[in-house]
Design a protein around this nucleic acid. Structure first.
Length: 508
RNA sequence: GCCAAGGUGGCAGAGUCCGGCCGAACGCAGCUGCCUGCAGAGCAGCCCACCGCCGGUUCAAAUCCGGCCCUUGGCUCCA
């Protein structure tokens, strides 16, 4: 089965066919950098990242572009706050750096380009000029608006009738617009101080917005670009007139994406994007997580608290296009799932080195389970990136490993061979599958082994030797004390048939 | 009000496009047993659903059709 995706444009799940059979042009509608990124953003990032990874896994080259909107009154509103910067440009740069660093901490594949609005103003001006020339846009009082009535397909993405759209943008613009639903492509003059003040945390004592915000010259005089036009200009600059995949948050469908389609297709006469995918939002206590509602957990805090693997397990616990409940419980569950995977992985890796693995035993049950899981995984990912189903395939490999380890290779045959042998090749395949498929979800089993971790391991083993001696002497009280103390340091001890094993706290 | 998505076990969340193998995956919680000095982990099993409500189509519906109720998102900045 080949990849199928749900296209917002048609509302249907369709076979995915990029224009060039070997390459995928992917554009992700990035952030307005006026607040620290929160987990909701991370959810979209991770899903886009998984899409990227899966496309590459299945053989495509992916050209992935992700923008930063660094011109916005909300950014200006942060000027002078918390050392973020002294003007719009500096605040934006600070947040872009933080965002990129958050992205790295989530193990996201890098996009090829991270374009910024401030670096594409000439392209934006060109695009607006084209729209004016072609009669899709008009100048009014130094601003330029897109005439929604001129574009027949307006509303096709969000399924809205023009008559039902009451107005867009700042109410003050209405007098300048032919139709209230028209939207700004270019805004005359400097920054909108009223909007800045609305977003200013300390409101009152901020009066110099116009001196810290950027403006540009244009054929219509000094001004700033409108909100929607930048994505069209940037994606066309870096990916051409027609994209394969345009991805973004569900909350951007209208007006942002609708407007992108209108202005892009009006300008080029070509389809702007063949497939529109929308990531659903987090829900917390009956409302979405969002910067403006203030009910968010920052990416940095979450990574610090849970670690990358747990977080990615959590963020892919539902389909990208269905809502997901955010709560301490749902994260804790993801943590359990990740740990189950990790334990099974560690235990398999450990057995590979065990003498008992030096056999020619074959466990059909293990091998079949792994092969089935691989198929399930592939089918799930091809079915509109069903990451939850993919996770369950991974978990079933874990179960197969545990089962095999529990009863080593009884399935090997009825020749009365001694118990306790492991199916080396079967286990090896299971381990490789976890690594390979886990990587598609951005999960990483092999943490970086540092010199200090090795040393710590040696010391823990030493302590465990002592503890074994105590246990051998029946001195359980002392043995338990040692275990408790190790546990207090985050080192997990498990007594098994083959002696104690331990896990160091993961370093993330 | 208009547009869109969704309502599945104690929780979470697949399955709904292409009706039967779904008496519902995976995981969590709970319970029993095995293992164990204990604990943990693991294994075996149990538990848990009138799949929002009502009606229809069908030999057969969580899955298709119609109506209703409810929730969430968008219609204003937002991943």
């Amino acid at each position: 089965m080949t990849l199928h995706v749900t296209n917002t444009l048609t509302g249907e799940t369709e076979p995915f066919e990029p224009q060039d059979p070997d390459n995928v042009l992917l554009y992700y509608c990035g952030l307005t950098v006026s607040d620290p990124p929160h987990l909701g953003h991370a959810r979209s990032w991770v899903h886009v990242d998984v899409m990227h990874r899966w496309l590459e896994y299945t053989g495509y080259d992916v050209r992935h572009v992700e923008n930063f909107t660094d011109i916005n009154e909300k950014i200006v509103a942060r000027v002078g706050e918390d050392d973020l910067g002294e003007d719009e440009r500096e605040v934006a740069r600070t947040y872009i750096e933080r965002t990129l660093s958050d992205m790295r901490s989530l193990n996201l594949l890098r996009a090829e380009v991270y374009p910024r609005v401030s670096e594409h103003v000439p392209e934006i001006v060109d695009l607006v000029e084209t729209l004016v020339e072609k009669g899709y846009a008009y100048e009014s009082n130094g601003s330029v608006y897109f005439d929604v009535t001129s574009f027949d397909d307006y509303g096709k993405l969000s399924n809205q009738e023009l008559e039902e759209i009451e107005s867009q943008g700042d109410p003050d613009e209405r007098t300048e617009k032919r139709n209230p639903a028209d939207f700004a492509l270019w805004k005359a003059g400097g920054v909108d101080e009223k909007a800045v003040l609305e977003h200013r945390h300390d409101g009152v004592n901020f009066e110099c917005a116009h001196t810290t915000a950027q403006t540009w010259d244009s054929p219509w005089g000094e001004g700033r670009p409108g909100w929607h036009i930048e994505c069209s200009a940037m994606s066309m600059t870096h990916l051409g007139e027609t994209l394969d995949l345009h991805v973004g948050g569900r909350d951007l469908v209208f007006p942002h994406h609708e407007n992108e389609i209108a202005q892009s297709e009006a300008a080029t006469g070509e389809v702007f994007a063949n497939y529109w995918l929308h990531c659903e939002l987090f829900q917390m206590d009956d409302e979405k997580m969002s910067s403006s509602l203030g009910n968010f957990v920052t990416v940095a805090d979450a990574v610090e608290q849970w670690g990358t693997n747990v977080l990615r397990t959590f963020l892919t616990a539902g389909s990208y296009n269905s809502k997901q409940l955010y709560s301490d419980e749902t994260i804790a569950e993801a943590e359990e799932r990740w740990e189950r995977l990790e334990r099974a992985y560690d235990s398999a890796v450990e057995r590979l080195d065990a003498p008992a693995a030096r056999t020619k035993l074959e466990d059909e049950e293990l091998r079949t389970a792994v092969a089935d899981a691989r198929e399930t995984f592939t089918a799930a990912m091809n079915d509109d990136f069903n990451t939850r189903e993919a996770q369950s395939a991974l978990l079933s490999i874990a179960t197969a490993i545990n089962r095999h380890v529990e009863e080593p290779a009884d399935a090997a045959g009825d020749d009365g061979r001694a118990e306790g042998g492991y199916d080396y090749r079967g286990l090896r395949r299971a381990v490789e599958s976890l690594e390979e498929l886990g990587d598609v979800l951005g999960l990483s089993f092999v943490g970086e082994t540092t010199g200090t971790a090795d040393l710590a391991g040696d010391v823990v083993e030493l302590v465990l030797d002592v503890r074994e001696r105590e246990r051998g002497d029946g001195n359980y009280e002392r043995a338990d004390e040692l275990r408790d103390e190790l546990e207090a340091m985050g080192i997990e001890i498990q007594d098994t048939d083959e002696g104690p094993s331990y896990r160091l706290p993961s370093e993330e």
